[in-house]
Design a protein around this nucleic acid. Sequence first.
DNA 1: ATCTATTTTTAACGCGCGCAAATTTTGAAT
DNA 2: ATTCAAAATTTGCGCGCGTTAAAAATAGAT
Lengths: 343, 343
Amino acid sequence: MSGRKVKNMEEFAVVSGISRPTVSKFFHDPESVRKSTRRKIEAALEQYDYRPNIFAINQNRKLTKTVGIVVPYLADPFFAEIARKIERRCIEAGYWPTLFSSHGERKYESDILETLRSLKPAGVLLAPVGRASDRAAVETFCKNVPTVLFDSNIEDMGAAFVGSDNFSFVSQSVDYLTRSGSAPVFFEMRTPPNPNANKRRLAYIEIMEKLNFKPQIIQVEGEGWEFEQFGYQGAMRVLAGDELTSDTVLCSNDRLAIGFLAAAYEKGVQVGIGPSATLRVASHDDHPFSRFTCPSLTTVAHDYEAVSNRSVETLFRLIEEGGTFDSRDETLFPARLILRASA
Amino acid sequence: MSGRKVKNMEEFAVVSGISRPTVSKFFHDPESVRKSTRRKIEAALEQYDYRPNIFAINQNRKLTKTVGIVVPYLADPFFAEIARKIERRCIEAGYWPTLFSSHGERKYESDILETLRSLKPAGVLLAPVGRASDRAAVETFCKNVPTVLFDSNIEDMGAAFVGSDNFSFVSQSVDYLTRSGSAPVFFEMRTPPNPNANKRRLAYIEIMEKLNFKPQIIQVEGEGWEFEQFGYQGAMRVLAGDELTSDTVLCSNDRLAIGFLAAAYEKGVQVGIGPSATLRVASHDDHPFSRFTCPSLTTVAHDYEAVSNRSVETLFRLIEEGGTFDSRDETLFPARLILRASA
DNA sequence: ATCTATTTTTAACGCGCGCAAATTTTGAAT
DNA sequence: ATTCAAAATTTGCGCGCGTTAAAAATAGAT
């Protein structure tokens, strides 16, 4: 890392004593050249610190090595976490991931898809903003770019979907709550941005009826992704009135639960499973912060690892097969109950 | 959006009835062409849905429109939030921001800087991982790419630094705590990854001495960025013993405080300002979740808006001035005390 | 030393657009 | 109709690398 500056592959080929096409081949796949030439190039690489120009590379390739990752809301640690895992997998596979956040808004999502189209990525992993998504925009995008949806499904869009099994979440939480106490009331947003919420509600109703309990649903107001705030406000109202028909509350997701617990604390309502507690609260997702709520949150965990791994694998398979699958398969991973102090 | 496919600017120029150089000019700046031609191009744009090839564009430009944004840990909502603000500003200014997270690790940060170099960005906004940073790598990077540091400073690196005034944080929290009760013990990590922590400790000591109080510092173990966990473990130990020499604790940052509050709750220690409370806890940062802790966290807030705005403005000024400033100026924004229930 | 399969070299074109100089057209003012 | 600056066009090179076909060199086996 000392010698003269090297502007391009031509110059680098000269100083390494190898022809340019061979050098080009090397950067494509170091194993594809003879060992002796590889060593020469690597030696030159240490002296001259040259890197091929990304833009020039991608200009002529039919198949870019870029992969787009789009999440609905990056300020949500849940998505930050899963994005991180996916990013890492892509890098390991030799791809170049680029991360985007829709910030919960249709306009951003559409803009990102536009940007992605001109990036000509090999493939895209898309977690749509859900209800706010511009279905037409997503659809045309999926037709032009190999896309795998994850986390939140939109019917018939993308070549595949990978996510968690919402039924599995609710079945485990309701099962546990009814066995260990009384049947839960379901606490959710009236207009949730994410379709998973709807699936969870339906699962709740189905499971409760199967167990011969009457489903009770409390829906709180709020538009957007500030779930904690909506949970807090809703809980303040609920805890002030007599809307609560059970001593057990099952929140649709952890972020609502975090708000709920904050409200309960403020109202002096003892949450937990001890003898002094008057309310149990459980939830779904195993949000990174759910271990640190007061009390710590009993919840049902995504199989983060499985979802991110399978998403990436599926995308790579899709890319290899030329951008389309024979049929659109949906993979749902089961969830895992995490018992903590709140229920 | 119906007509034949248009592969490149040449073809698009033909179908829009305008010459290619003029079309090129249009995409650079729509205002730079005559109104009548602009209308023709825009009309063709609606019919043919053409977008210039990003790679080809950036290949020849001396000055890319790309801007790199690097944060140390994106799963921390604090950084997710500030990254979001910065992203938006860049887009508004016509730049193309690309977001990277170092995930708290030196290796990732160095890799990102490598990647960024080959991206040839117009400029980079870098929040270093701090203690873990490879100073040599950061230094050479800053020499080659116009860079503005933010949030966490590294002396003499980058063309400028924009962040919050750590002294202002601590001065306000200590002032408030001493006036409203007793002087606080300072609760922090023994080996914090972020240099801001050191500045806060020094500020604490200085302010306490000025007020004629004896500084008391509790340092907890932990390597990495799982601050809540370290705060929780540390607090469990502290609350079990008699290390606590005051009824007031000032945490170095909110994430530690979140862990601390979880431990206090578990230990049955009443935190807050009411008559029944035995412990006050305050902190710094105004983390997005600090409103929802139990009790809600009294803290000192960054001026997010000002920091992100000034960072971006500074970078653009730097770019305009050709990549260097006459002198390296450090901008520190004052913080704002947020009174809540915990202290 | 001879043969063969593999690898490297040579030579040259193409990608899509930036950019510049010289020329022509335009539109508004005289 | 004349003038003239501003805008648009023509022409053509260059960017850095992918890619290919044919020629040459290399390495391993006989």
